[in-house]
Amino acid sequence: MKRPSSTRRRFMGGLLGSASFWLYSDHEVWADALTAVDAGPYTPRYFNQEEWRFLNAACERIFPTDAHGPGARSLGAPEFIDRQMDTPYGHGKLWYMSGPFLNAPENLGYQLSLPPRDIYRQGIAAADAYARQHHDGRSFADLDASAQTAVLKDLEHSEMPLGSVPAHFFFEQLRQNTLEGVFSDPLHGGNKGLAGWTLLGFPGARADFMDWVNQQGAPYPFGPVSISGETA
């Protein structure tokens, strides 16, 4: 994995400072969610320490380190999720959030009053309590990998309330956000070293395949590049 070079920093600076990037749509509010130019060890801004330990462990179980390469933790999925909590999405500002909030059949969709920030706050506390209850008071982050997986599988299929969030709903929120962190542009804090894209063979922001429309099933030959110009 190549570390961001000084060239990359200049590129990022140029891009982020350009009128096209900042002036339009919702860029202003997205600014906080973007990766800092010099990434040191990440300090979460939304999650507290206990939540952060849970999140790191859970993300890693959902997308584990294995023979294929790094897992969600070293790819920065927890950092991605923490940054997302301060976007309009995290605050529920992309959703219709007016009441009354009724119990309705599941096929009619999300009907809770909680934005993602609160789904995590309530969900993590209750899921960790569930882990402690079944594992002699040990928190989720302190369990071994197979026990953590077993807890997540319980949540995946359970209607049990975690705070006011059904367990399976909390799990799906966590699963989706983890995969977003693994596979989105590193601009948002995850997919470090573009390793998520490398796994799938997705070439990122190349976005020009004029000469590769039909090569009779041959693999596309080039590795990924990010929006900022980083390569794997």
Binding site: S20, Y24, S25, E180, F183, S184, D185, A205, A207, I227
Partner: peptide, 11 residues
């Protein structure tokens, strides 16, 4: 706002 590369951000 539709320019390359900032517009091709899947997230």
């Amino acid at each position: 706002e539709g320019d390359y590369p900032s517009s091709i951000d899947e997230l």
